[in-house]
Design a protein around this nucleic acid. Structure first.
Lengths: 137, 137
DNA sequence: TCAAGTGGTTGGGTTGTGCAACCATGGAAG
DNA sequence: CTTCCATGGTTGCACAACCCAACCACTTGA
């Protein structure tokens, strides 16, 4: 495959995937949208951060994040803690329930991906993962 | 990287990509959403098909396709032709203008991807493309 | 001290989507 | 030939996710 063709293919396939992903995620977990799930995941990884950090990291408008965060708090999945060093800031943390729901959804998403990727040789999985990381970097 | 980790990474990175794609596409081409672009592409490839075929192929509700198609027709990018064999059916075709716009958008999307993938070794591009095709199959 | 910057919320509007109800046509079974 | 169900498509309705702009509260630095 020539370089130009490969780029063309990557473009098309990434687009196909993008189109499907959200709907699939919604069908799998009506209780936790793709965005909410991603935000929870980020909070888990980072061990708590500000709404502005989330917005910057995911290239979302701060108003969007604000509303998502409000929803997650309403659902009892996260909590806001004041930052003693800066009264403007709310540091977001997962609640116990949030951690629990996140773990459940992650597990079932992982199962779906695992099924989808069943039969792939170990080496291909690693390389695919590496390419995606490099692409998104 | 172990197999489970790779799956985990693939899941996360695909999700990241999915979240970004629509916004990026919108910024690049306000005149043609990601969905519309995909539908036009399908019409180009297939040389004309029915709205129902589009819905089935992309797992979209027929109402969604109906509205997208209406928009594309309003924009003069596609036209509906009656099917002499079945009065219910409208066969959708690209117009000259539709073909033109599609070509332009495709080219600039391709340029963006090419830039993003600049510096990747030929072999990695090919393999990445192959993985994506296999994943979406 | 006060102006500019930053974190966050809210109001308003757009887009993409699904579901359900509907209309028109087609096809098969009586 | 009628009658009934299936199929292609449109429309009303609701909703989620988004952005922009305006705003408030607090911080920072000239």
């Amino acid at each position: 495959m020539h370089s130009a063709d490969a780029v063309e293919t990557i473009q098309r396939e990434m687009t196909v995937f993008a189109r499907r992903a959200r709907a699939a995620a919604g069908r799998m977990h009506p209780e936790l949208s793709l965005v909410s799930y991603t935000l929870l995941g980020h909070l888990e990884e980072s061990g708590g951060c500000r709404a502005t950090d989330l917005a910057a990291h995911y290239a979302l408008d701060k108003s969007t994040v604000s509303r998502q965060v409000a929803g997650l708090e309403r659902a009892g999945l996260i909590e806001r803690r004041p930052d003693p060093a800066d009264q403007r800031v709310q540091v977001l943390h997962l609640t116990r329930s949030g951690r629990h729901v996140l773990a459940q959804v992650t597990e079932s998403r992982r199962a779906a991906f695992r099924e989808r990727l069943a039969g792939w040789p170990e080496e291909d999985l690693s390389r695919f993962a590496e390419y995606l990381v490099r692409y998104n970097a």
